[in-house]
Design a binder for these strands. Sequence first.
RNA 1: GCGAAAGUGGCGGAACGGCAGACGCGCUGGACUUAGAAUCCAGUGGGAGAAAUCCUGUAGGGGUUCAAAUCCCCUCUUUCGCACCA
Length: 824
Amino acid sequence: MEYPFDKIEKKWQNIWLEKKIFNARNDDKRETYYILSMFPYPSGALHMGHVSNYSIGDAITRYKLMQGYNVMQPMGYDSFGMPAENFAIQHNSHPQITTEENIAIMRNQFNSIGFGFDWEREVSTCRPEYYRWGQWFFKRLYEKGLAYKKKSFVNWCDDCQTVLANEQVEDGSCWRCGSEVRQKELEQWFFKITDYAEELLDFSKMIDWPERVITMQTNWIGKSIGTRIDFRMINSEELLPVFTTRPDTIFGCTFMALPPEHPFVSRWLENPQYDDSIRKFCEEVMNEDKINRAAEDTTKKGVYSGYDCLNPVNGEKVQIWITNYVLMDYGTGAVMAVPTHDQRDFEFARKYDIPMKIVIQNPENELVLEDMEAAYIEPGVLVNSGKFNGMRSEESKAAISEWMEANAMGEKTVTYRLRDWGVSRQRYWGNPIPVIYCDKCGEVLVPDEELPVLLPDNVQLGKTTQNPLLSVEDWVNTTCPGCGGKARRETDTMDTFVDSSWYFARYADAGNTKEPFSREAADKWLPVDQYIGGIEHACMHLLYARFFHKFMRDMGMVSCDEPFARLLTQGMVTKDGAKMSKSKGNIVDPQYIIDRFGSDTVRTFMLFSSPPEKDVEWSDSGVKGAFRFLNRIWRIIEDNLDVINSAAPEYNSDNLSKEMTGLRRSTHFTTWKVLHDIADRMQFNTAIAAVMEHLNNVYAISEPAALGKDEQSVFAEACRKIPQLIYFFAPHISEELWEVMGNTTLVHEAGLPTYKSEFLQKEVVTYAIQIMGKVRGKLEVPVDTDEEELKKSALELENVQKYIEGKKIKKIIVIPRKLISIVV
RNA sequence: GCGAAAGUGGCGGAACGGCAGACGCGCUGGACUUAGAAUCCAGUGGGAGAAAUCCUGUAGGGGUUCAAAUCCCCUCUUUCGCACCA
């Protein structure tokens, strides 16, 4: 009844492995095609999301294989990270062991689905042979001044004595013990991605990236051109710089807003005499959730610091306030507040009764200070602005900024929202930072020949304070590579995003023990021709990887400017409208579905049910539908094998019936459609729909055995094409049927299926006749009917006559082969 | 809150500004069968009508156009990201 998918799938998986068809060779001279799906975190058994994502990559892999490319589709594991560490703490095990177990499970499952991965290139980021080179990269960045240390705030739980990720903070409390989380300042390592901010804004080297990802990255980098203005502190010579995009409003600045983290504030707080209520306020704000503070709707609050500065343009005294609505991370970390022309400043000034001054007047409707209910942020004409009075605000921006530059009050500046990349993690399960601290020599890098700095095995997880590595004394205590004296190792490990920022290049030369990868191998494969992954990586992973790639280019390790030529952001698998997750209890186990229906069925369902960039809504009956479809293919070929295998490949088309001409068209059109949908649009769902439609056409032939000789050939051709048309989504059944029909090669070895364009054309087409945009009739005519003839016949239609009677025809628009629109 | 995207039958979805709903699921009817399952065939947005045909319909409201699911403006809802999850 059901086709024997189980036997078939095992058989062909073994043949593929034996023939090594997915093992790409660096000495293969054919043109390369590098297809890469984002590597998974090794969480154990595969979930539906994996199956769905990798089905897309595999479909492209097989298509490109048919096309004759030297295709590389590698797979690996992003195996460092918090989940493994947390799991180890809970289960009193070691991440090394559980991670390797999980990897073995996943690799097996990948093979049982028949994905064409090149296992000879497998990488796992937690293995020393991989993370060695991450440390090597850290050193190179350090040497170029692109890795540096600075103080920065982290979420800190005093009870657990540990740093918490944002997701581990629930309503300001620790997820594990529930005690309050506070912000603690720690020395942390940073990568200077901001050095590349300008180049990262250039997307011209991508062949095909979704516009939305480019927009999101552009906004994330957030370039803004403005002016740095230096305010002088009263009672000291010190300058307080601010960044503003609105130098035109400088004459209206009535106070200065600083965040509590500002270095000036920190210094004031060092004075024990400093006002206690201010101190309390600062602590309060600093411990607020970071995300909440950035939100524009949070209530603005602040205190007067007791310090003042001078507005350089007019010498007016400006009070300095400490507030919760300014972020230290952006610009200079200080804001010149102009309440009349900035909404946040306006709200703040009203609340605390700070004076306001209108400096941009609305030319249409004069502003009166007392009546203002919101800041006026539109352009206007300058007032109260000294010699700039009367100038239009748009023009005054440049004029004021040039004037200030000439008088040493400030200068034109470009600022980015993008911040340097903090890579320090106070965790065990990550790549150790190869730095040693020596009392005599200071900060020393571990020599290259001593890399990798291995993670120690004998760590006590969950029982230590602060950073687990700190507790491994014989690991921490070491000798200085410089002077040989006593020294201590850096105990921070690197963000896992570092590991995933260069793995795509390692695949090109995964076994290299001398360097991360050879230039030759990188140049052969890079850039990745097609990268596939979730949209959630739009800003972070994809930006970090681009940064790393550009760094590698500047080091002379790769030649191209961008790592990923084309990008496809695939959707996730949902059930009942929600993402599949254990907590929601809406998980479907892929293994169960594969055991019951086979891998070809699951892949068919995944690719058929929606276009790749959209979510796939899980449906049990949808899977059965996919299974039914494959069974129908199996049956029509098995049942008519005699006809198919005995029919001549060549036939005479002259005397074909209308029905068989239609079938011939279906065969050729479907071939065209499948090739077009995959190659030009990457839309697998419509390609599969086309094959289904073709199959319906084949089924419409009632008795193939009773057909004439030429017609049997047409029928045979319609069936013989099918394995090639389904290879990209159902490769196992495709290979089996291909073999059954007498072929001795593998499907991909025969190349892409071909079609004849002369068989695509329909002989008769139907025109829709519109009158004022409404369809009022249909017209069936031979394809080659000329325009005048068409117009004439259209007007003659009875229903059309009814609507144009007594009206004047203004225009007739003819869209070839589609419709005729009559304007009356 | 900010940034990005999406919204089409009962459901998943299709439709380079040109006949809305291809294809699949589900449902209804028929064939086969002792019966069921499976399979095959047909129908299936809503409303009126015996039919021809007409009206209506792509989250809601407005606009551009001979023609709008598609382009523009506003509103609503959902999803993703917001820098220590990967």
